[in-house]
Design a protein around this nucleic acid. Structure first.
Length: 127
DNA sequence: GTTCTCACA
DNA sequence: TGTGAGAA
């Protein structure tokens, strides 16, 4: 299984994603309604997010912080999709696991937000 | 204990 | 966007 496939595995329930992104469950569900993310569903109809979903939510938050509205976010997210086709990073399994483990074990900042936030973002961006 | 959907003094 | 109800 390659890195790309692993990034799409439905793994996290909304509570985890909440802490990973700093977004409220309400916002996360709201963004799903607007098709900004497409989490899979468990047998019990529970949302399961992949790394790709988490990454997108972090980007959504960034764009929203920049003052964009839902429409603006959708537009820029759509453009990013095409422009990003060629520069996806190639990482070894070890790099992936090590990075994730470190991020999850990092202590929270005084603001209560996990450092994993920025790390995950940069991680998939370029490296 | 968590998450889901739906509705709103 | 938040909050609470009722169910799973």
């Amino acid at each position: 299984m390659d890195v790309d496939a692993r990034k799409r595995l439905p793994l996290f329930p909304i509570g985890i994603v909440q802490r990973l992104t700093g977004l409220s469950a309400r916002q996360i569900r709201y963004y799903e309604q607007h098709e900004l993310v497409h989490p899979a569903r468990s047998e019990g109809n529970q949302r399961l997010f992949s790394f790709v979903d988490v990454e997108r939510l972090l980007e959504v938050r960034t764009l929203l912080d920049e003052g964009l509205n839902m429409a603006g976010v959708k537009a820029r997210l759509a453009k990013r999709q095409n422009r990003r086709r060629s520069d996806s990073a190639e990482l070894t399994d070890e790099q992936v696991y090590q990075h994730i483990r470190q991020g999850l074990l990092e202590p929270r900042t005084p603001s209560g937000v996990s450092e994993f936030q920025g790390d995950l973002f940069r991680f998939y961006r370029k490296h």
